[in-house]
Design a protein around this nucleic acid. Structure first.
Length: 181
DNA sequence: ATATTGATTGTTACT
DNA sequence: AGTAACAATCAATAT
């Protein structure tokens, strides 16, 4: 696609973003625009086209040219919403086998997510928190490796006993305090 | 044929 | 402090 289209898109996105910030200062922005829009015609709009920010693209879209992909680099932990989405996707696809657009699931999931109460989101957040904890551990190891990729040593070409410390699989205790009234 | 977009929110890393 | 990018997903689209 021509770059000027992207530029225009970015400009529009920026404008919208600034407008949202002015109106509601932050996260409620998305909710507001959705609130004043009928669900039938929710245009929710592209949240943020993953395009080059016209500036130094340090975190480019995927793999531009630099930014070597490190298979060791742990991917970011799924947020509570994503944890919920994973489950929601199954349900949604089950009820809507004809729908193949990921955006449909995304929208539906988003609405459902907002519809859910904190108590319902709690288990997902708990799981997300655990994922985050593991991520921190992984990223720590990753950073260390990045810092000291090669241990200063005259290691001969022999079997490399690089036993990466496996993540301790501690069983998570699920608390079921579902006490209805 | 392969990389990317589309859409969601949350979260993280960077500035 | 704040924002931009990315996390899954899968089919379709664009290059």
């Amino acid at each position: 696609m021509p770059c000027f289209y992207v530029c225009l898109d970015i400009r529009l996105l920026e404008f919208r973003y600034l407008a949202n910030m002015k109106t509601t200062k932050g996260k409620a922005a998305r909710s507001s625009k959705e609130a004043l829009k009928p669900v039938d015609d929710i245009k929710v709009g592209k949240r943020k086209a993953v395009s080059k920010p016209e500036k130094s693209s340090k975190r480019q879209t995927k793999k531009e040219k630099k930014a070597k992909k490190d298979p060791n680099k742990p991917k970011r932990p799924p947020s509570a919403f994503f944890v919920f989405l994973e489950e929601f996707r199954k349900t949604f696809k089950k009820e809507n086998p004809n729908v193949k657009a990921v955006s449909a699931v995304g929208k539906a999931g988003g609405e459902k997510w907002k519809s859910m109460s904190e108590a319902e989101k709690a288990p997902y957040e708990a799981k997300a928190a655990k994922k985050k904890a593991e991520y921190e551990k992984l990223i720590k190891a990753y950073n260390k490796k990045q810092e000291s990729p090669a241990d200063g040593g005259d290691e001969e070409s022999e079997v490399n006993d690089e036993d990466e410390e496996e993540e301790a699989q501690e069983e998570e205790e699920e608390e079921d305090d579902e006490d209805d009234d």
